[in-house]
Amino acid sequence: MTPADLTAYLSAFRARWQVTLQYRAAALAGVVTQIWWGAINLMVYAAFYGGTSAAPLTLPQTISYVWIMQGTLALMPWGCDPDIADAVRSGAVAHDLLRPVDPWWWWFCRAAARILGRLLPRAVLMAGFAGVLLPLAGLDRWALHLPPRVADAALFGVSIVLGLLLSACITVLLNVATVRTLSPLGANAVITPLSLILSGNMLPLALFPAAVQHLLLLQPFAGLGDLPCRFWLGTLHGPWAAAALAQQVAWIVALTWGGRLALRRTLCQLEVQGG
């Protein structure tokens, strides 16, 4: 990759980031929805916990987990890039693919910028609400609590960045699937529920039955939410922390490789069709 290429990718990133940041009202509405959703979840978990504490996570830990998940909801790969879906529908996607840049990187930068642009305002607002406002209002029991150590917070940050890259990789794969099947509906319909469940967003992965724990920790979606949350809660140390980060990196590498392969094949197909 030459420096000139890099500039192109950076400007793709910057443009997308700016566009996404403009939707401030949407971010605010999104956060209100997430707070509501989180509140329902908290009340349900509190009822389930009742008196018992025989669970792998304590109730306060679960509460922090729920708030982090709601705050980082934008990290989920919600589906194919909407602009690409439009381009596929109108047939203009050939233009996108014929730009003198590597389409995988182009799409990756766009996806990463969009995710970051959606994530940052929502995460900050949510942290302000759950971490500051709730304790101030005397609702400390329901609040988001800080990680036990500074190191945990730092690892959480690293893990979130890896999660963002992972999510962008998945989004590129969805783009490829959309170009292939000529419609974003199929891929989007599968990926949304899948990522909500397997990332721990719907239910902390630690609360799933013990038999499937290892499997759950190895699958890629864990890196979108559950692993960062574990860092925040301070439950990953030493070799486990290294293993968790390695898991995320491994999936990023695998999905990059797979995504580039799938994209190359799709491009060959497009050329054959003359599309």
């Binding site: 389930f48 018992t52 469940i197 239910l203 609360l207």
Partner: peptide, 19 residues
């Protein structure tokens, strides 16, 4: 995939017994 949502509730019941 939507059926999995109820699976989540069922998992919670398995773990905690009752609600």
């Amino acid at each position: 995939t939507t059926l999995l949502a109820f699976a989540g509730i069922w998992i919670l019941f398995r773990r905690f017994g009752s609600l």
